[in-house]
Amino acid sequence: MSKEAPIDRAAVLHVAKLARLTVSDAEADALTRDMQSILAYVKKLDELDVAKVPATSHAVHLETLLRPDEPRPCMPLEKVIANSPERIGDGFGVPKIIE
């Protein structure tokens, strides 16, 4: 696990942007403090030697589930778009995207 210094405020702000979250100054302070203490806590995993242990991403054995390539009725447009914050034509409106 990381030997670096615990996460600092700048790193917190970087992660916040990566996660698309605005954080106020006060929130940034609190998050820095909380994340530092949580990361210090999880450091206890360093006590274990897991070099040869496989990682578990599914705890229970699962078979591959395959679906036949048969069309199912789609959801009616009005239902799909009913919760949309901004409807433009039959699409979901967003601020103009410039590539």
């Binding site: 433009i88 034509g89 039959d90 967003v94 103009k96």
Partner: peptide
């Protein structure tokens, strides 16, 4: 993402 000035004006919409 569709940029269709006639439909969306200064916005975009998603299909």
């Amino acid at each position: 993402n569709v940029h269709d000035d006639l439909v969306a004006g200064a916005r975009s919409y998603v299909d």
